[in-house]
């Protein structure tokens, strides 16, 4: 009889242990989240970089500065951030994306290629200050 009682008690103890562990873990995680939610968040300042248009098919665009900090897409298609209505530009020609604190230019297998400092761009490149980017007949200068 005592053995039977002991067995039943142990069975419930086992079940209780399982429950208690999950409960405690969930509470600990909730506490963690709760603390994080009320921490003061640091405000990060986005440093902007710019593309300056040096030459273009359209005289009005020359010497315009394009400021950006997020991803920037270039091409002839209307869904790009910068639309270049130029026959030598592909629909989705190139994209500049932020990688950590640098900016990366990627050519999207365009028909007439992207040129950086007079060289054909194959794949991706990190942009430096003062790089000259040529897309179709438009020439940009990268500034940061």
């Amino acid at each position: 009889m005592t053995i039977k009682i002991a067995v039943v008690a142990l069975e419930y103890a086992l079940l209780f242990c399982i429950c208690a562990f999950i409960y405690k873990t969930m509470r600990a995680m909730y506490g963690d989240l709760h603390d994080k939610a009320y921490e003061e968040t640091k405000v990060t300042v986005n440093k902007k970089v710019a593309l300056v248009i040096l030459q273009s098919y359209d005289e009005k665009l020359v010497n315009k500065r394009i400021l950006f900090s997020d991803m920037l897409t270039l091409g002839r298609g209307v869904d790009n951030n910068i639309v270049l209505a130029d026959a030598y530009v592909s629909h989705h020609h190139a994209v500049i994306s932020p990688v950590k604190n640098q900016y990366q230019l990627e050519d999207l297998h365009s028909r007439n290629h992207t040129y950086v400092n007079e060289k054909v761009l194959l794949g991706k490149i990190f942009l430096q200050n003062g790089d000259i980017i040529k897309i179709g007949t438009t020439v940009f200068k990268f500034e940061r």
């Binding site: 053995i3 002991a6 142990l10 086992l14 242990c17 399982i18 562990f21 405690k24």
Partner: peptide, 16 residues
């Protein structure tokens, strides 16, 4: 608590 599980199970086995 998690380490209690094998111990309890063994104890149960022993009692049984």
């Amino acid at each position: 608590l998690q380490a209690m599980l094998p111990a309890l199970a063994m104890l149960l086995f022993y009692v049984k």
